[in-house]
């Protein structure tokens, strides 16, 4: 059973405070800069292209359970993709092997079409639980790609070995493919088989980047402050260990050798 020690408790409280502080500050100031992420920029381009071709898109929210952070971030991206598709009058097909994702994705897509004033375009059959395991789902998704002649594929979330089983058949169909995962072992496969890849924490920033909501942007700024603290601890730890040995005051304070 894992429990926080004092150092972890302090770190969590401090990081949470920074993130919440920046969120509420950003809400008031309504601003914030965010660097360009090419993979996310191309999402609108891909949706537009699919719409022009009159073909549907596939969104695959990974193989993680719904409580997985990567899946949650992916569902945020799904919200944006569905909203854009609804505005352009296009279809999004969601395929998943996780049953709990079905009602959540259905709610997100339905909400997007309703908000865009096109509720009649929403079809619950487009949210598809295709198989109970990843490799079977990959085959079934490849089949959907062939049958529906999809023009854009989005793979966001947590992935395992099935990443290539999904993206390689997609590559052969000629569709534009954009992927994003927090599983770094799968990143090379996505880079090799997709047109654009969103790497690691960029996935978590995707919702903020796409919606430009002050709340989300503030959260990103808070994250950056937290990362500066982590970086400072690493530098101080390395310096103090190099100069004073491994049992110095700073190292004991942060509890590395406990």
């Amino acid at each position: 059973m894992e429990h926080a020690n004092l150092q972890i408790f302090i770190a969590i409280v401090l990081f949470s405070f920074l993130i919440l502080w920046k969120i509420f500050t950003a809400r008031r100031s309504k601003g914030g800069f965010i660097r360009r992420i090419p993979g996310l920029n191309e999402i609108d381009e891909a949706i537009g292209r699919a719409t022009e071709m009159g073909r549907p898109m596939i969104f695959h929210p990974g193989v993680g359970e719904v409580q997985n952070v990567g899946t949650l971030a992916a569902l945020g991206v799904l919200g944006h993709v569905a909203r854009k598709a609804a505005q352009m009058g296009s279809r999004v097909i969601v395929t998943t092997a996780i049953p709990v994702v079905v009602p959540v994705a259905e709610d997100i897509v339905k909400q997007a079409y309703t908000q865009a004033g096109r509720p009649e375009l929403f079809n619950s059959e487009d949210i598809r639980f295709l198989a109970a395991s990843g490799d079977q789902l990959a085959l079934a998704t490849a089949n959907v790609m062939e049958q529906e002649k999809t023009a854009a594929h989005f793979f966001f979330g947590m992935y395992d070995y099935t990443s290539l089983l999904l993206t390689e058949p997609g590559q052969r169909t000629g569709a534009i493919q954009i992927a994003g995962t927090d599983q770094y072992f799968q990143v090379p496969f996505f880079i090799a088989s997709c047109d654009y890849t969103v790497i690691g924490e960029e996935l978590y920033a995707a919702s903020a980047y796409l919606t430009r909501e002050p709340t989300m942007l503030g959260s990103l700024i808070g994250q950056d402050y937290a990362k500066i603290i982590v970086l400072a601890v690493i530098v101080l730890g390395a310096l103090s260990t190099t100069l004073l040995g491994s049992q110095n005051f700073f190292v004991q304070l942060i509890g590395v050798y406990r």
Binding site: I12, Y204, A205, L220, A226, V230
Partner: peptide, 13 residues
């Protein structure tokens, strides 16, 4: 490091 801090932020949101 980036992902863990990002995960805290997503979790909080």
């Amino acid at each position: 490091f980036g992902m863990m801090v990002g995960a805290i932020a997503v979790g909080l949101r």
